[in-house]
Amino acid sequence: MVELDIEEWLRYPKIDMHCHVWNLANEKEEQVSSEQLILAGEMLGITEFWCSSPIIGGLIASVEAVREENDTILRAIKRHPQHIRGMCFVIPGHYQMALDEINRCLDSGMIGIKLYNQYRINDPAVFPVIELAIERKVPILEHAGYLHAREDLDSQPLISHGEHFAEVSARYPEAMLIHAHIGGGGDWEHTVSAMRHGSPNLYCDVSGSNLDDGQVEWAVAEMGAESVLFGTDGTMTGSVGKVIDATLTEEDKSLIFWKNAERILAAQGARPTQPREVVG
């Protein structure tokens, strides 16, 4: 078995398509936080982060509160245009106001939509958001995981999992839907397998604090390497390490670390903030 060259893999360019910049007490703290994120990423070859600031806990917050979160992301993009890109968080139940917020954020430079656990991805309340994403050719990243312990489900009763994504993917095969963090908690084998017959536009990302061996290979075996994205959700070294260690071809890893995200950007006429060949 050939020994992995960890240092070389750290220089390999990567796009982290699942990360966050938080709405903090003041802009100075926000700056410190995003600078630390970028610094940590540079050590690992991560050149850009697709960030959102979702309202968690299933809370149906006000439209104004949602807008404030997205303004945090817009400020971060303005501070670090080479490294931070935005995913617009909305609560689909706000209906027209959610659609207006998506258009505002996309017109201001964001490149996708972030949904949390206020609604399952297959809830009809989400369909107008999906239809707008199709029209604007942007991806939707939704918080997800196959939870089954009672206390976990009690805290997130409307969390989406692979079966919900598969259903919506069949209804909207042209929608770029991303099941967030297969390492984010829950039965990753179950949730990934449920998506094995999804459309080519159905993706999962490998982020999350769970570093179970075989997770990345399972996603590739069930969904195809073109459908697996590199993300960290803040577990930076762990997520980089799991893809490096996965028993996949270099081409598969190249798709996961970079090319799949690049293809998602290309659909809306965008490119990575830095060309892949100059990284590292």
Binding site: L4, L211, G238, V240, G241, K242, A246
Partner: peptide, 17 residues
């Protein structure tokens, strides 16, 4: 590393940085 539960290279990446 917590192998074989976890990917061993994750700990190598942590050590590297």
């Amino acid at each position: 590393t917590h192998t074989p539960f976890s990917y061993p290279s994750a700990a190598r990446v942590k050590a590297a940085v």
